[in-house]
């Protein structure tokens, strides 16, 4: 389901920034900022899933947390259903919280282990005062059916379940309030392949049944491709490429996207491919390079040239956006975008 052009997107993010102060010295004074998210813009349509990929520390989880306002962004705008929720007070935000829910890598780890599965799933309903005790019980059963778990799970405790079943419980809980958008932060990366595919199938089915929108944050590119309509690639707090899922895998434009793709091991021993091993680690977001961050990592000869340039996204082809970065594009592509 691609985004409908006429319709307003469900969620829009404009130039999101999230800086964390770094303190040090004897007076514990602010000595700098970690620019975890530094100017990210994206949109998610109704019923659409957007994948967000990047290496650990690139700020992808921070983006997710800003969207559910677990973090208050330093700057930028988050517009949900045409309402600006960036500055909204907690009280006004409360009814909207039902519509955006978050699913974590191991949801149960972050929950009260003394609550039974039934209580855990009913908790959001209680907090938002939805329904009576008996109607909540009915809803819990319905949710367990939806995530293909036996109703008998109600009486049990999270530790009695395996990783895949726990993730189902986490998904059931996040669905309790009929949300429109799920922020899924590495929901399957702790699972074994056979169970991972069960949870992925469930997410695809739920999206079809309920018309959900997803922001799917993960580092496994094959998984992200499977579930996403569009994919955004993030590097050091900034987006470097955004395009349709098939397009970005078949026709990557940015050097970082290419490097990420070439590092994915292919489960086929007859394929012997050139591994373009990327050297070095992601640079520190406390003191990011002045110019192209990825150009700096690969010591690109044009790095000096990129300092002071606007490295924002440009539309190189219809619906295919890439950073306007001389270090990370082929000379042909650079020729096309430098004038845009």
């Amino acid at each position: 389901m691609a985004q409908n052009e006429q319709e307003e997107p469900l969620l829009e993010v404009h130039d999101l920034q999230m800086y964390f102060p770094v303190r040090g010295g004897v007076m514990f004074k602010k000595i700098g900022d970690v620019k975890a998210v530094d100017g990210v813009s994206l949109s998610i349509g109704r019923g659409e899933s957007l994948g967000l990929v990047g290496e650990s520390g690139c700020g992808k989880s921070t983006v997710g947390k800003c969207l559910v306002r677990l973090l208050k962004p330093t700057d930028g705008k988050v517009i949900f259903k045409e309402m600006d929720i960036t500055e909204m007070s907690q009280r006004r935000l409360r009814p909207l919280r039902q519509d955006i829910q978050m699913v974590f890598q191991d949801p149960v780890e972050s929950l009260d282990a003394r609550l039974s599965v039934g209580e855990l799933i009913a908790e959001p309903l209680q907090i938002h005062r939805v329904g009576s005790r008996s109607s909540r019980r009915e809803r819990v059963y319905e949710l367990l059916d939806q995530v293909r778990m036996p109703r008998s799970a109600v009486e049990k405790f999270p530790f009695e379940f395996s990783g895949g079943q726990r993730q189902r419980i986490g998904i059931a809980r996040s669905l309790a309030l009929n949300p429109e958008l799920l922020i899924l932060d590495e929901p399957v990366s702790a699972l074994d392949v056979s169970v991972q595919s069960q949870v992925l199938n469930l997410l695809v089915e739920l999206q079809r049944e309920l018309g959900l929108s997803y922001l799917f944050i993960a580092h496994d590119l094959a998984v992200v491709k499977h579930i996403s309509d569009r994919v955004a690639v993030m590097y050091l707090g900034k987006l470097v490429e955004v395009a349709g899922a098939d397009e970005i895998y078949h026709n990557p434009r940015h050097a970082y996207t290419k490097a990420l793709l070439s590092a994915v091991p292919i489960p086929d021993p007859t394929v012997k491919r050139e591994r373009k091993a990327l050297v070095g680690d992601v640079p520190s977001p406390i003191d990011p390079p002045a110019g192209s961050a990825f150009g700096h990592r690969i010591s690109h000869p044009k790095y000096e040239e990129s300092i002071g340039m606007d490295l924002g996204l440009v539309e190189i082809e219809r619906d295919h956006w890439v950073a306007r970065d001389p270090c990370c594009l082929t000379s042909e592509d650079w020729g096309r975008v430098r004038m845009l």
């Binding site: 395996s162 499977h226 489960p267």
Partner: peptide, 19 residues
């Protein structure tokens, strides 16, 4: 059951039932 880059998106993946 491994999702592969060449698979069609959002199609059902094979799974191993149970645990």
């Amino acid at each position: 059951s491994i999702p592969r880059l060449e698979y069609k998106r959002k199609t059902e993946l094979k799974t191993i039932e149970g645990q």
